[in-house]
């Protein structure tokens, strides 16, 4: 033990103010960071649970569908006609003059 008594330890040989200031701030910072992380985790969970209560159904999020209707050029398109591309929207008439606003 480098000190004779507790009082001597507290006095730090006259440098008490500096040693305890530096150590105090550091340990305070460690404590603050730990508590912050703890409450941050709890807050995140609580926000998530509240969010879940509002949207009970576990429906996969609404991914907006994109419909593709490529006008079939009479001559050249045949070769490129891949199945993925043939998702012709039902009901929309595939007339050549696509006048009506969709």
């Amino acid at each position: 033990m480098a000190f004779d008594s507790l009082a001597d330890f507290i006095a730090m040989g006259g440098h008490a103010r500096y040693v305890w200031a530096a150590w105090g701030v550091t340990l305070l910072m460690l404590l603050a960071l730990t508590l912050f992380a703890w409450f941050e985790q709890r807050l995140a969970l609580r926000v998530l649970r509240r969010h879940l209560r509002r949207t009970p159904t576990l429906a996969e999020r609404q991914v907006p569908k994109a419909s593709v209707t490529l006008a079939q050029a009479p001559t050249t398109q045949a070769t490129l006609q891949t199945s993925a591309q043939a998702s012709i929207q039902d009901g929309s008439q595939d007339s050549t003059h696509n006048r009506s606003a969709p």
């Binding site: 907006p64 569908k65 994109a66 593709v68 490529l70 050249t76 490129l80 993925a84 591309q85 998702s87």
Partner: peptide, 14 residues
């Protein structure tokens, strides 16, 4: 999500 599963092929004249 903006759009998903978008498939198309654009060729000459499209």
């Amino acid at each position: 999500p903006l759009f998903g599963q978008l498939d198309f092929a654009l060729g000459s004249g499209d």
